[in-house]
């Protein structure tokens, strides 16, 4: 399958990646040739047999919800990249209006 520049730009937006024009060109070519190979899955008749997504063949495994104290959660907060005291800082989420996609 031929991956056009438009498809690459669209997929990059979905993937939250910013690609240089050289990267766009390179990934376009590489994905096209990889998908030429991957296209062989279309040859397989799969009308019967279903899909296999859940690998362990198990359903509804539950466990008790037991509180484990603060030690791990505090360490996870510590890893946050931008914070002030106990407050986690992120950029405003309503500022993308003018962004061209």
């Amino acid at each position: 399958m031929q991956i056009t520049k438009d498809i690459i730009s669209h997929v990059a937006v979905l993937a939250r990646l910013r690609l240089s024009s050289q990267e766009e060109e390179k990934y376009g070519e590489q994905l096209s040739s990889l998908l030429d190979y991957m296209d062989r899955v279309q040859e397989v008749s799969t009308e019967e047999g279903g899909v296999l997504i859940q690998a362990a063949g198990q359903t509804h495994i539950w466990r008790e919800d037991i509180p484990k104290g603060e030690s791990v959660s505090l360490k996870i907060v510590e890893a946050f990249t931008n914070k002030e005291g106990a407050l986690l800082k992120v950029q405003a989420i309503f500022e993308d209006r003018g962004r061209e996609e």
Partner: peptide, 20 residues
């Protein structure tokens, strides 16, 4: 944001893209 490499841009989406 939550952990790992961070590179801030003008917008939130820009920061996601730049960091990644």
């Amino acid at each position: 944001l939550r952990y790992g490499y961070a590179s801030q841009d003008q917008t939130l989406v820009g920061s996601y893209e730049q960091s990644r």
